Deep mutational scan, measured.
Amino acid sequence: LPHTAVCLVCGEAGKEDTVEEEEGKFNLMLMECSICNEIIHPGCLKIKESEGVVNDELPNCWECPKC
């Protein structure tokens, strides 16, 4: 993702460097949905019932829970 990318919900950049544990890092890193192209911190999504499908081949790419 470009350095200028920010979260659609909170308007902040990736914050994964501020935590140690892997789950915390994931919730604070910016992810781009391969379907709707929205860039968001997974932790900013209010959807709890399902998780997005992470694409292991492309960094910061997933199918968000909304899609």
Score class of each variant (00 low, 15 high):
S50W: 08
E38G: 05
M31H: 06
E23R: 10
E23K: 14
V19F: 14
H41S: 00
C33M: 02
V54E: 12
E16S: 07
C7F: 01
H41L: 00
K46I: 05
C10R: 03
V53E: 11
K25A: 06
E16F: 03
P65C: 04
E38P: 01
E57Q: 09
N37G: 13
V9H: 05
P42F: 06
A5V: 02
E22L: 11
L45F: 05
G43F: 02
C67P: 00
G52I: 03
T4G: 02
D17R: 10
G24F: 12
T4Q: 01
L58V: 11
D56H: 15
C67R: 00
I35Y: 03
K48T: 14
W62Q: 02
W62T: 04
C36P: 01
N27A: 13
N55C: 07
N60G: 10
L8W: 10
L45D: 03
K66W: 01
C7V: 01
I40S: 13
K66V: 07
K15F: 04
V19G: 07
L30T: 07
E12C: 08
S50Q: 09
C64R: 00
V19S: 08
S50P: 13
N27H: 03
C61V: 15
E49H: 10
E49W: 06
K66Y: 02
V54L: 09
T18V: 02
V19D: 03
P65E: 08
I47M: 14
L1N: 15
I35R: 11
C33A: 00
E12M: 13
H3N: 14
E51R: 11
L30S: 03
T18P: 06
W62P: 08
I47C: 08
G14Q: 11
E20N: 13
G24W: 03
N60D: 07
L30N: 08
L28F: 13
L30D: 00
C44Y: 00
E38D: 05
C44T: 00
E23T: 11
V53N: 08
I40Y: 06
C61P: 10
E21W: 04
L45Y: 05
C67G: 00
N55G: 11
C10H: 01
L1C: 15
A5W: 13
E21A: 13
K48C: 07
E22H: 09
M29L: 06
A13W: 06
G24C: 04
C36K: 02
I40A: 12
F26Q: 04
V6Y: 15
V6G: 02
E16D: 02
